[in-house]
Design a protein around this nucleic acid. Structure first.
Lengths: 329, 329
DNA sequence: CCGTTTCAGTGATACGATTCAGTGAACCGC
DNA sequence: GCGGTTCACTGAATCGTATCACTGAAACGG
């Protein structure tokens, strides 16, 4: 039978102190050096460790940070989640990760569930940044948004999507492409997503013809959408709004016996570690995932520790040219 | 200011019942149909939802399952984690994911931390299945092991590694390879890992020469180890003990201007979704990740719900031949 | 030497549920 | 109409910690 855990009361008894004193001592508060030592010794002796649940109930704090992902089918978001999780660990916090699977309703339900779980803060890659419930949520706990901006957050790490889109489209134009098919996913389907707007605006400015196609989320969804697309009309270039969507295009091209970039050029957006390993390497827009992770962890830690200044970090893109876009015309 | 949450007491007051009755009613226990309806209505009216923390303290259950990963640098383990997390959601449970980053000491600390968090069960991909602390842990909560067997678990999903290794090595032998370099990672560095044993045993049986090289964990570690390996002596084939290690070999080969499989053949182990997208596709041993996810979720749910029968699921491998292994001799 | 701070520690209560033992009423068969 | 069940519900204890309001003693300045 599992030996019952020691409680704070037993430590109190062992040291002849009150439970309150022990509670303070173990957190290095209000007590003399000597008592602290004594308490620590007794705690070690009894194998005592504070019960996180009871602690959470009493203090309202858990040490956990909620991480609400838009869709973990996306490999880039997986990398982000893993990175953030590890970054938080180094700050002695834990990540509670939930995956909205591209569904706004689930995003809402999960966000509230995380609040109920008393996470000390929430990092979110919003699917629907314009939704109303965020306002209420931001009032009851610090929120850091990644990607899209949400009103009322304690901080945000946003991508300069205008710049990223411009970079990508200019690159395509410079290589002679005139008509661009944009392949996005349901993750990005909210009508007024800034990135989508930028695409049409920038395409206009650059004199490019644009066609936007939306794929179901996930590698399978992207592959099947790409298959339909490539089979129906063969676009000269597909601009994918996530590297993992581009992977789907590679897969579809392979199935159909088309060569990249010979028959169809592909441009990505994200830079996942695998993108350099494909043949040809995927030309993409790199958002510096490590930088994003560091910024997000820093912002949420500061906010959860009571920091009050609202911070906004704008991530600058870099073009990674690897060979998946051909020169034409 | 955030409106304070409604408590069970307020619902009790609103319905004229005792808090106990409300508690029962909301869980569909012990009360009349009519009262249940009344309570539900009042709860909805007040926007009441049970506080998960208080509930956990009182009942000792959290609805969470701990997921302790060996190393999330490994893309395959990422897929596994995402899948399990989603599978648990469908059973109305949440996953608390921790990453041991290939470090046995951390594995131990995290396992105990998860127990303290009162997870209802623990799914683990053990780094060090022989460690002593598992026994104690298994006594205090249901544990399901994936990959390697641990004594005392409530269930396990193990891979028929003997069979998988045999498949891979026979395939290499059939294609004429006589000397095989095995590239493994620190994740697999425990001296007596069964899979390693199988390699030498099977190699003996098949009359193959074996050389084992260990890489640091993660894509970067694998790449640098592969770079050293390929530069020093050019093996005819590298058998990687995880697809993500194979990705490192692809990267190193590309850097060094070597072709796969022309200059060096590569065999993987896992079958990650990306493996089919590389050029050439990675020949690998597929463990049916969806099957593993389903089995693990089923086992831990049963155990956490009080099921008592110890279950063992043996996963059978399939060879995915894709073209990264050349015929020689 | 007095009044005020500071220090170290105490006792009680709060956090918000679950759960156990018990209670009165209704119902049962005989 | 009586002992025994069952039903629907109540009251109180419990989970293990944090925190608030105090208290007695020591330290301090003038």
């Amino acid at each position: 039978m599992p030996r019952k855990r020691a409680t704070i009361r037993e430590v109190a008894q062992a040291t002849g102190l009150s439970p309150a004193a022990v509670s303070y001592a173990l957190r290095g508060l209000q007590v003399s050096e000597e008592t602290m030592e004594r308490v620590r010794a007794a705690a070690a002796e009894l194998g005592y460790e504070a019960d996180p649940i009871a602690r959470a109930l009493a203090s309202g704090r858990t040490g956990m940070i909620g991480l609400l992902c838009g869709s973990l089918e996306d490999l880039w978001q997986q990398s982000l989640a893993v990175g953030i999780s590890r970054g938080l660990r180094e700050k002695d916090r834990y990540a509670l990760i939930l995956d909205a699977v591209g569904d706004p309703a689930r995003e809402r339900a999960f966000a509230q569930r995380l609040r109920d779980q008393r996470v000390d803060g929430l990092i979110v890659q919003p699917i629907d940044p314009a939704a109303a419930f965020w306002a209420e949520l931001c009032e009851s706990l610090p929120v850091v948004a990644i990607g899209d901006s949400i009103a009322g957050t304690a901080g945000e790490v946003v991508f300069d999507n205008r710049r990223g889109v411009t970079m990508a489209l200019e690159h395509l134009r410079d290589l002679g492409h005139r008509r661009v098919t944009v392949l996005t996913s349901t993750r990005a389907s909210t009508p007024d997503r800034p990135a989508d707007l930028h695409v049409t605006a920038e395409a206009d400015r650059l004199g490019l013809d644009i066609e936007v196609v939306t794929a179901p989320h996930g590698l399978a969804g992207a592959t099947s959408a790409a298959r339909d697309l490539l089979a129906a009309r063969r676009p000269s270039v597909v601009f994918c709004f996530a590297d993992s969507i581009a992977y789907g295009v590679y897969a579809a091209a392979q199935e159909l016996g088309l060569s990249v970039p010979g028959d169809v050029s592909v441009m990505g957006y994200d830079d996942h570690p695998m993108s350099g390993l494909l043949t040809p390497g995927l030309t993409t827009v790199d958002w510096d995932i490590d930088g994003i992770v560091r910024a997000a962890v820093r912002l949420i830690s500061a906010a959860a520790d009571g920091g009050t200044r609202r911070r906004r970090v704008v991530q600058a893109p870099t073009l990674r040219e690897r060979g998946s876009v051909a020169r034409v015309g």
